[in-house]
Amino acid sequence: KELVLVLYDYQEKSPREVTVKKGDILTLLNSTNKDWWKVEVDDSQGFIPAAYLKKL
Rank of each mutant, 00 (worst) to 15 (best):
N33Q: 09
I25M: 05
K22S: 08
K55S: 07
K21V: 07
Y10I: 02
T19F: 06
P15I: 08
V39K: 00
N30F: 06
V4I: 04
D24V: 06
V41T: 15
T27A: 10
L29G: 01
D24E: 10
D24I: 05
D9H: 05
V20D: 00
K34T: 10
S14L: 08
G23P: 00
G23C: 07
Q45T: 13
R16A: 11
A50E: 04
L28N: 00
K22F: 05
Y52L: 12
V18D: 01
K1D: 08
V6P: 00
E2S: 11
L5H: 03
E17N: 09
Y8N: 10
N30Y: 05
V39R: 00
V18E: 01
I48E: 01
A51R: 15
K54I: 12
L53I: 05
N33V: 05
T19N: 08
F47C: 13
K1S: 09
E17M: 08
K13Y: 07
E12T: 14
W37I: 02
E2P: 10
L3E: 06
V4Q: 00
D24Y: 07
P49C: 07
K21Y: 09
L3V: 07
L56Y: 07
N30C: 13
V20L: 05
V4F: 03
A50V: 07
K22A: 13
Q11M: 12
V18L: 15
A50H: 04
Y8V: 09
P49R: 04
V39Q: 00
N30R: 06
K55G: 05
D42G: 15
Q45G: 06
L56T: 05
P49G: 03
G23E: 02
K55R: 12
G46F: 15
P49E: 04
S44V: 15
V20R: 01
P49F: 06
E17C: 08
L28H: 01
S44M: 14
K21G: 04
E2A: 10
E40I: 10
D24R: 10
G23Y: 04
K38R: 10
V18C: 09
P49H: 04
D42Y: 11
V41Q: 08
K13G: 08
K1C: 14
Y10V: 01
L56R: 01
D35S: 10
E17T: 11
K13C: 11
K38L: 15
A51V: 12
L29F: 03
S31Y: 06
K54W: 08
Y52T: 06
E40W: 08
S14A: 09
V18K: 07
L28S: 01
K13D: 07
Q11H: 14
K55P: 09
N33P: 04
L56K: 02
E12P: 14
K38N: 06
T27G: 06
V20Q: 02
V6N: 00
K21P: 01
P15M: 08
D9K: 02
K21Q: 08
D9W: 04
V18T: 06
V39C: 05
L29D: 00
Q11L: 12
V6C: 06
S14Y: 09
V41K: 15
V4W: 05
E40V: 10
T32V: 09
L28A: 02
D43L: 09
Y52G: 08
V41R: 11
I25F: 04
V41E: 02
Q45E: 14
V18F: 14
L7K: 05
K38W: 13
L29N: 02
D24P: 01
Q11V: 14
